[in-house]
Design a protein around this nucleic acid. Structure first.
Lengths: 343, 343
DNA sequence: TTCTCTACTGTGAACGCTCACAGAAGCATG
DNA sequence: CATGCTTCTGTGAGCGTTCACAGTAGAGAA
């Protein structure tokens, strides 16, 4: 008549309970749990049934204590959080990574290193081995946290090519340069010749590479790069607006503009609209990212799709491989031109 | 001359090392780590110094194994992920919760229950005690996952009042009804009398409450609620656009519209612009959320600010309290009218 | 038969921590 | 002087796993 556990959570079954239920030893249950090598079919089946009956779930803490692995990874965002959290790409990346990890039964810990204090805490947490590896989002160059983790030998995969770090850190990135080339070639194929560019921050690889692609294609086409047609932004909407205004002031004859992010391209569209330029008739606009902003814009943006789903799944694949002992790797993924109305 | 640990991570110091270093026992170190009661100042200091010297960080797995707590919480997103991940509010909430938890040294595990399979895995994971509690984002009514967790006695705090669940689940929400009342009163004070509304989904508390606030104020002002002026959307931009078109078709004389989210309000502005209506001269537009979309819109949106930073910190506070043994609680936070250009 | 090899199983010891308990020392109270 | 109370400290046990090792049984070879 007494309640065994009034109002609380029941104590979950242990591997011991399963062993008793199945009539085998703890060792055998453990072997079944970890791949099932060297277990007889009969034992295998008995254990499986016992697990199902008891509703057993492995206690990861006990496992981690002995293996030294945590079987979890961190998703680390350093530096300007505002920029990222406003960026729809970040969402897609975070979701993709979470899901890819879930498929491997690996939990994701979200870590935001904003203040100096948080950086220290997080660095300690990671180097203490509370996560097995880190997915790093920090396009910024020479990140001190990343450097410290790399030195501590923590498996690390960056999103986008890290500038500051040595070659020993893995990364997965879209082919920014090639994407930019595609877009500029497309603008040329439309007959445009006075093509401006609003770049991303030039301390990020994406900013640098996309600008490089732009210059390459122009040069190949025999068009001299005119520095009046080059301005840089910070991927924000506002900076796109400001960039477009500067371009119009400096080169009113411009007939196309390549913008290094969709968010900035939205700003560019606003500025052009205010200036009375019709898009794409007077001036063609090409974006980059294929984020929700691209379809929300009026007119809908012609843009370069970054394969975020593949980027996230590759980041996870590379990280898990590296945790498993493989060497760091770099993965570059192709982009795709998406034609809509703006160019 | 032999490398003790070629190319790998060094084995971190244990509580034992610290005890030896400080010249005390494990027990004393443990006491210092957990609040420092019943420790002499001398021991306290010796241990602190030893911790600093050795760079000791507690092994959470070992601790969790014995305490039965995991000292981590889950951030669970069920149902339509697209909607949330596109929603800037989600970002702010996620960030706020992560930071509030970090201040308590509690890691956040991100859990996305999209497919039926993922729901099962996550439910098992949580009920197995791998997290101490759950921050729930699922405005949808009668969520089966939430129901299961509640029954299992897992501490739970929802964001927004859950419709389906019993009264035993905690939640933190903005005062949707009062916010809606403020906005509609504001529109009335502008002299508008034919006020339309684009509601949120009516299976969510936000959707229901904001509509209720709208109706209350109109009734109080002696204006009969005209159902032709009421359409509902799903918080997406596109549904706002469609909603506005329907309203214009049904009630062309409309001189204001209250839109239950900024994202939808953006859509409404597009539709009004296309229809040649000037905002706010011909028609005033009021949004809800004060998301980045509000300032990005042209004209900038007058809207209702939801106190997301407070919502997230309150969610964390209530959850930790509940994990600590306190009873479930409901917290309703006030909203604020933000005047910009659209109304 | 005897030995070896393979396939499988059980057993203790650890992993690093917390908790309960026992005990010591200091001080006031009877 | 015994007794109690408070404050502090050390010790052993045990949390639920995995891992190394020892051991068993059966098959095949010598």
């Amino acid at each position: 008549m007494t309640m065994s556990n009034p109002g609380g959570r029941r104590k979950p079954p242990t591997i011991h309970d399963v062993a008793r239920e199945a009539g085998v030893s703890r060792g055998t249950v453990s072997r079944v749990l970890n791949g099932g090598h060297y277990v007889s079919p009969a034992a295998q089946e008995a254990v499986d049934a016992a697990i199902r009956r008891t509703g057993y779930v492995v206690n990861r803490h006990a496992r981690s204590l002995i293996t030294g692995r945590s079987d979890s990874v961190g998703f680390l965002l350093t530096e300007p959080q505002e920029r990222f959290f406003e960026d729809p790409n970040f969402n897609v990346l975070l979701r993709g990574c979470t899901q890819a990890l879930a498929a491997h039964d690996v939990p994701l810990l979200l870590m935001l290193a904003g203040t100096e204090d948080e950086r220290r805490r997080i660095t300690r947490y990671i180097t203490a081995g509370h996560v097995d590896g880190v997915l790093l989002v920090s396009s910024h160059s020479g990140d001190p946290v990343a450097e410290e983790l790399r030195e501590a030998g923590v498996p690390l995969v960056a999103c986008g090519k890290p500038i500051g770090l040595g070659s020993k850190v893995s990364y997965v990135a879209a082919d920014d340069r090639d994407g930019a080339r595609d877009m500029v070639r497309h603008l040329l194929s439309l007959g445009r010749r006075r093509i401006g560019v609003v770049t991303g921050p030039l301390d990020t690889p994406g900013g640098v590479e996309r600008l490089a692609g732009y210059k390459e294609v122009l040069t190949e086409a025999g068009i001299a790069v005119d520095e009046r047609l080059v301005v840089s932004g910070d991927y924000s909407r506002a900076s796109g607006e400001a960039g477009a205004e500067r371009l119009l002031a400096r080169a009113p004859e411009m007939d196309a503009v390549f913008v290094a992010s969709d968010l900035m391209a939205q700003g560019v569209l606003s500025a052009l609209h205010r200036a009375g330029r019709r898009v794409p008739d007077d001036i063609a606009v090409g974006g980059f990212d294929d984020s929700p902003a691209a379809t929300a814009a009026t007119p809908a943006l012609t843009t370069i799709r970054q394969p975020w789903d593949r980027i996230s799944s590759e980041m996870v694949r590379v990280l898990l491989a590296q945790i498993g002992g493989e060497d760091p790797a770099a993965v570059i993924l192709p982009t795709e031109l998406v034609r809509r109305e703006s160019a």
